[in-house]
């Protein structure tokens, strides 16, 4: 056990010894991202991985709306995911008819009058309402 330890040490010395030199001096690269980079471009994962033509078509509509309309607006939706994201996710996971109905219903619920009905996302300061997820109560505690 002792010898294996020594062999391991020697090996690791051999492997890592040459990278010792760089630790001195001002390491400017660490601070490259210290300031915010001001990038406000968004990417939409919701429009990716389309399974069929219908999903591609709706994803196209979604991207069109996001690029030319939603981009000209501040956050106006009270929910996360937003209504348009909810729409594309609902159609992708429940089909056009049910997903469409869910979206129309969501549009009427997007009024901010009943915040007590939803969980709250503290980071985004928005109400949580995900069409793909049903809230479940955990059975077993995560602390004992």
């Amino acid at each position: 056990m002792k010898y294996t330890g020594i062999v391991f040490l020697l090996l690791s010395l051999l492997l890592c010894g040459n990278s010792m030199a760089q630790s001195s001096g001002k390491r400017t690269n660490l601070y490259r991202n210290m300031l915010e980079d001001g990038n406000i471009k968004k990417t939409y994962w919701q429009a990716q991985n389309n399974q069929n033509e219908l999903q591609t078509a709706f994803s196209g509509l979604f991207l069109f709306y996001k690029t030319f309309f939603s981009s000209q607006d501040l956050t106006v939706c009270t929910f996360t995911p937003s209504c348009s994201e909810y729409g594309i996710l609902a159609i992708k996971s429940h089909g056009m008819i049910k997903g469409g109905l869910m979206t129309m219903d969501r549009l009427t619920r997007c009024n901010g009058l009943s915040p007590q009905n939803y969980e709250f996302d503290k980071k985004l300061m928005l109400l949580k309402d995900d069409p793909t997820r049903e809230p479940l109560v955990p059975v077993v505690a995560s602390y004992k």
Partner: peptide, 16 residues
């Protein structure tokens, strides 16, 4: 759309 969506939404609201 709103009419049908609301029927769906009412059923869902009861379930929720």
């Amino acid at each position: 759309g709103f009419y049908l969506g609301n029927i769906y939404g009412s059923v869902k609201s009861a379930k929720v």
